[in-house]
Computed example of a mutant assay.
Amino acid sequence: MEPLALSAGLAAGLILIVGLPVVGGLIWAVALGIRIRREEPPTPQEEDQPRLPEGGPVVEAQERREPDELPPRPERLLPHELRTQGSHTSSNQRRRRWHPGASGSFGSGGPGHR
Results as ranks from 00 to 15, higher is better:
Ile27Arg: 06
Gln49Lys: 11
Gly86Cys: 05
Arg83Gln: 13
Val18Trp: 08
Leu26Val: 10
Gln93Asn: 01
Glu75Ala: 14
Gly33Tyr: 03
Pro72Ala: 09
Gly55Phe: 09
His99Val: 14
Leu32Gln: 15
Leu52Phe: 14
Ala31Asn: 06
Glu69Met: 13
Thr84Asn: 12
Ile17Cys: 07
Leu70Trp: 13
Ser87Val: 00
Val23Cys: 05
Pro44Gln: 01
Pro100Val: 14
Gly101His: 00
Ile27Asp: 07
Thr43Leu: 11
Leu82Lys: 07
Glu46Met: 02
Gly24Met: 03
Glu69Gly: 06
Asp48Asn: 03
Glu39Ser: 11
Trp28Phe: 12
Arg97Asn: 05
Gln45Lys: 14
Asp48Arg: 11
Leu20Arg: 04
Pro74Thr: 10
Gly86Arg: 02
Pro74Lys: 09
Glu75Asn: 08
His88Pro: 03
Val58Glu: 05
Ile36Tyr: 07
Arg97Lys: 13
Gly56Lys: 00
His88Met: 13
Ile17Thr: 05
Leu20Asp: 08
Arg65Ala: 01
Arg83Thr: 12
Pro42Ser: 14
Pro53Ile: 02
Glu75Gly: 12
Ser91Trp: 09
Arg83Trp: 05
Val22Arg: 11
Pro72Val: 14
Pro41Gly: 00
Glu46Thr: 10
Pro42Val: 05
Asn92Lys: 13
Glu60Ser: 03
Gly104Val: 00
Glu54Gln: 06
Val59Tyr: 04
Arg83Ser: 07
Pro71Val: 04
Leu20Cys: 02
Pro67Glu: 09
Glu69Leu: 15
Leu52Glu: 04
Gly86Pro: 00
Ala102Gln: 08
Ile27Cys: 10
Trp28Ala: 13
Glu63Cys: 09
Arg97Ile: 09
Ile36Glu: 08
Thr89Ile: 14
Gly86Val: 01
Asp68Leu: 15
Ala102Val: 01
His80Trp: 15
Arg97Gly: 03
Arg95Lys: 10
Glu66Val: 12
Glu75Tyr: 07
Ala29Phe: 10
Arg51Tyr: 06
Arg65Ile: 07
Gln93Pro: 02
Pro50Arg: 05
Pro21Trp: 01
Ala61Phe: 03
Thr84Leu: 15
Trp28Asp: 14
Pro100Lys: 07
Pro44Gly: 00
Pro71Ile: 04
Arg64Trp: 14
Leu32Tyr: 15
